[in-house]
Each structure stands twice: as C-alpha cells, then as structure tokens.
Write a protein that binds this DNA or RNA. Sequence first.
DNA 1: CTTCCTTTTCTTACATTGTAAGAGTAGTGG
DNA 2: CCACTACTCTTACAATGTAAGAAAAGGAAG
Lengths: 213, 213
Amino acid sequence: MADRRARPRAGLTRERVLDAALDFADRHGVAALSMRKLGAELDVEAMTLYHYVPNKDALFEAMVDRLVQSLARVEPGDGEDWSAWLIRLGGAFRDALLAHPGALPVLATRPVTSGPSVELVESALRYLGRAGFEPPRALDVLNAVMTFVLGHALAEAGSPPGADESEVDSLANVDGADFPLLALALSAGPRHAERFAFALGTLVRGFATARSR
Amino acid sequence: MADRRARPRAGLTRERVLDAALDFADRHGVAALSMRKLGAELDVEAMTLYHYVPNKDALFEAMVDRLVQSLARVEPGDGEDWSAWLIRLGGAFRDALLAHPGALPVLATRPVTSGPSVELVESALRYLGRAGFEPPRALDVLNAVMTFVLGHALAEAGSPPGADESEVDSLANVDGADFPLLALALSAGPRHAERFAFALGTLVRGFATARSR
DNA sequence: CTTCCTTTTCTTACATTGTAAGAGTAGTGG
DNA sequence: CCACTACTCTTACAATGTAAGAAAAGGAAG
C-alpha cells in the first residue's frame, strides 16, 4: 500500500527510459552513460533496459529521434514569409539541440535518417518551393541552415559535462597580453544568442537571390 | 640484418602513432579504435602506446590538433580581399576535416582549445580587423564560418565507417512516390562541393554589411 | 484458489575495453 | 663490465555491452 520506492520506479516504460537517458547525458555526458548506470538511475538492473531498447545504439538513436521530432511543429504561419519561417525553423532546431546538450555529441555523430526527419525535409521543400526555390536549391538552403545550426549548437554547448573543469569555457580566460584582439572580442561576454541570430539572419537574407521567381 | 618486420615497425614515434590512429579511424571509425587494436596496427602491445601518449583521450586531442594545425598556413595573400580569404579559410577547414572523416566525430565533440588554435583565432581577428570588422563582430564572423563548415563537414562525411551498410547515404534511396520533392532535389546527385560553396559564399557575402568602415 | 501464459525483471557469464604497476630488454656512455 | 635511460612487454583489475536463460509477477480461465 505504501509507495513501492522512493524513486518512482512503478511503471517503467520506454518513454521513461529515454527520459532518464537524456537526463543522465545532460548531467554527466554521454560518454559516462552506461547501461548499468542508467539502470541504477531507474532502480533497475542493466539487463532490464533491454526489454525497452534492443541495444545501446538503438537507445542513442531513439534519443536523437526524440530531439528531431520536436521540429515537426514548426510550420509556416499564415502569410509568414519564407525567410521568417526559415529563421524560426533554425531557432527551433537550436532550442531543441540545446535543450539536451548532453545528447548533442550523439546527434552530431549520427546521420539523421529516421522516417519522421525525412518527412520534415519533404515538407520543408514544399514550403520553400512555394516561395520560389527549385527543389535542388531548396535542399541547398535547408542543408545550409541545418548544418549551420548544428555546428553552432556544438560550439555553444561546448565540452560535455564531465570534462576537465579547469578549462571550461576555454576561451574565456585567454591572456589579454598574448591575444589582445581575442580578449577584446570576448570582453562583451558569451553573446551566443546574438551571434546565432546574426549569422542565421545573414545566411537566410542571402538566400533571397537564389530564388527563381 | 634483414628487415625486422613486414610492417615498418622500426622507429616507433608519436607521429607514427598519430598517423596510425587517424588512418585507423578513417578505415573503421573512431568507435572501433581501441588501444589494443591500434597497437596491433603498429605491431606493438597496447601498453607500448602509453609511452607516446598519456592516455586515449590525449590521443584524440592530438589527432584533433593535427587537423586544426593545417589551417595555420591559410594567411591572406597580397591584396587578397577579406571575403576571398574567409572563403579560402572555410574551404581549407573543410578539406582538413574531410581529409580524415573518421576523426570528425572526435573533433565535433571536443572544444578546440589547443594553444595553436587560439593563435589562429587571434590572427584571424587581426586580418578581419584590418578589413574593418570590430573585434566582437570579427569573432562572430569567424565563428559563423567555422561552425558552418563543421556542421557541413559532419553532414557530408555522413555516418562513420562501420555503420549499417544498408542505409549508407540514407537519403539517396528515398521513395519518389512518398517524397517527390526530395527525390527530385536528390536526382542531381550529391553536389556536396557546390552546396558548400553556395552556402559559404552566401554567408560571407552577407558579412559585408557588418563592417564598420 | 490453482493452473497456465505473458510480461517484466534479475542472475550469471564472457569477451573487450582503458590503464595501473612493474618486470624485462636494448642500447649508450663510462 | 656496470649503470642508466629509453623503450617494450606481461600481468592484472575494474568497467563495459550484451547473450542466455532463470526467476518473479501479474492476469485470465477453470
């Protein structure tokens, strides 16, 4: 009658396994994620997890899918301009990636190939086509945006947790005497968001000339 | 007097260890790289490697450094325009990354923090400053280019070797009936190089408006 | 309740990994 | 010959992914 456990173990499910994995990755880094430790997090032995996930690689894949699927809801609003939509898409992707920085190395290392992501690309091509981009060009545009966002997120998330504490945000403590310009450039603080907006805006604006009509 | 081994084992050195590691990573993927296997590649026991590298992580770091350092030679030519130089820098970075796609996951996952890379950034800021970019803006520009190139290289290199053969170049075999636009966009072939040039050119061109003079 | 069946969990076991500790070996200078 | 340094190997251990199958926990049917 009393609760079975301090940790809410009741009703283990694939969702909960994935959540725990993402959470663990965010707190300790993917490198530290082992089936045994993940099991311990859920008050379960390692082998139990194999009932919800065929193997560790599939678990990684599922984590990635989870992140990518959050993009499905970024559809163009009524009368929304293609460039505004692209910027919104890029921003949503960035948010999704930074929501779980621990999973980033996994996503970056793996070709995103899941069914839903292909549908995403197709509908993006549809929107861009409507805005006057031929399919190949539209794919170029989409590719440029997504790869840029991925690269930026990687840089922004920086080292995964568990890395050497001493050099966290490595560039933050450069010697102003040896590297005056860099020190000056960094004196304004991180500015990740502005940096991102600046670059994405520049990129998207430039695509205007690539439309066929 | 005769040669000691078929494999050129004579004179093991840190350089040779790094070369072998990069080579192995390219052929089988970093995931498959273990100290024992790398040792075997050099006709040596695993522990021998620890004489040249303090641990596996340092080996990865050294591999990354090797790639990054090849950028040191990309200095602006006489009278070379800043945008041309930026494009050349981006291209060189791409080349360096794609020269060892196996090492890409390592580089992407790790904050590039080595001494030489900081010097690289400083000198890049110097060039861009000469071209009229204030240091913070110059860093934004540089960051945008580098992150884009990294993201693009990741996408281009695709899955590391050793991944599931069936879905290599996953997007290449989409169903034209279900995803007509994507199929159409892909019918032109990979076009990685053009895609890269298109996006990098667009990005760099857009930076022109961010100069202060 | 008992019996059977399915779903979920655990126990054991093994090959592979990174690497600590230290022992062997080779070559070099005295 | 000795001592010393540079290099390599042997052995060992803890941690990992996961195969094989035993145990437990429900639930449905009698």
